Amino acid sequence: MSSVTDFLLNRASEPRLEAPAPDAVTLERAFSCASRAPDHALLRPWRYLVIEGEDLKALGDLFAAAYSDNIDGPKLEKMHKKAMRAPMVIVGIASVQKHHKVPEVEQLLSAGASMSFLGLALQDAGYGVMWRTGDMAYNPVVLEGLGLEKGESITGFLYTGTVSSTKPDVPRPELAEFVARWPK
């Protein structure tokens, strides 16, 4: 198998991330990889926001504001700290368009593939990534605060930085659990 296959077989999400984050040259190359995702009709139904440095505090403020009416002090502080899990957070946004040949679901899958390619490129450059969604990806306060347009949705928050400590290997399913031949 190729080095790509070996890389994929060893890919893992890394939740413990610290500075430094990817530099501008690395990011440019990674976003170029993201743009190579399958994309029926070349709609490019994705876009990204890069958040780092002091802007992570503003993201934490936005996360906390999304729940400030429903939770108390310690839980509110926990929401704020979610933005500080890595030195850089890249927000993936699906920008679905009306198209006579390309249904919404294909555009969402393309945006997800783009996000995946981005994460793989960053890992190949030596950085760790953790793709997260959760309540923040669907909260209207967060969507508005990040400037999403009508019809856009968050594909995830890609936390990235330097791996501070690797997590233990995760058991992988047996192929027979998710692969079958058709017809039987």
Rank of each mutant, 00 (worst) to 15 (best):
D69S: 11
G134D: 02
R36G: 03
I71D: 07
P38V: 09
E77R: 15
L43N: 14
D135M: 12
S116R: 04
S95F: 03
A86K: 12
A65R: 13
N139Q: 08
G112F: 14
K82W: 08
D69R: 07
E152C: 07
P140L: 06
A66T: 01
K57D: 14
E106F: 08
G134R: 01
G92M: 12
Y67I: 12
G53H: 12
G147S: 04
V129P: 05
V142W: 03
H80V: 02
I93W: 06
A113R: 01
Q123M: 04
Y48T: 04
L122Y: 00
D55K: 14
G73D: 15
F63S: 05
A125C: 08
Q123R: 07
V141R: 13
H99L: 07
A94Y: 13
D135F: 13
H80Q: 09
R85E: 02
R44N: 13
T160E: 00
T133M: 06
G156L: 04
P140A: 03
S95K: 15
D39Y: 10
G147W: 10
A58P: 01
H99E: 07
P45A: 12
Q97D: 02
A86V: 10
L122C: 01
V141N: 05
Y159S: 05
M84P: 06
F157V: 02
M84I: 05
G145L: 01
S68H: 12
Y159M: 08
A86Y: 14
E152I: 03
Y48K: 08
V129C: 13
E52C: 04
M88S: 04
G161Q: 06
M115F: 13
G73L: 12
S68T: 10
P38M: 06
S32R: 15
P45Y: 09
H40V: 14
L146K: 06
G156R: 03
M79A: 15
Y48N: 02
M136A: 13
K75I: 11
K81I: 00
L59H: 05
T162S: 14
D55G: 03
W46H: 11
G53R: 11
L49N: 07
M88H: 06
A58V: 09
G112D: 10
A37V: 11
K98C: 02
F63G: 07
A37S: 12
V163R: 00
S153L: 06
K150I: 10
G112N: 09
M84F: 05
Y138S: 06
A137N: 06
P74C: 04
E144F: 00
S153N: 08
T162W: 02
L56H: 01
A66P: 05
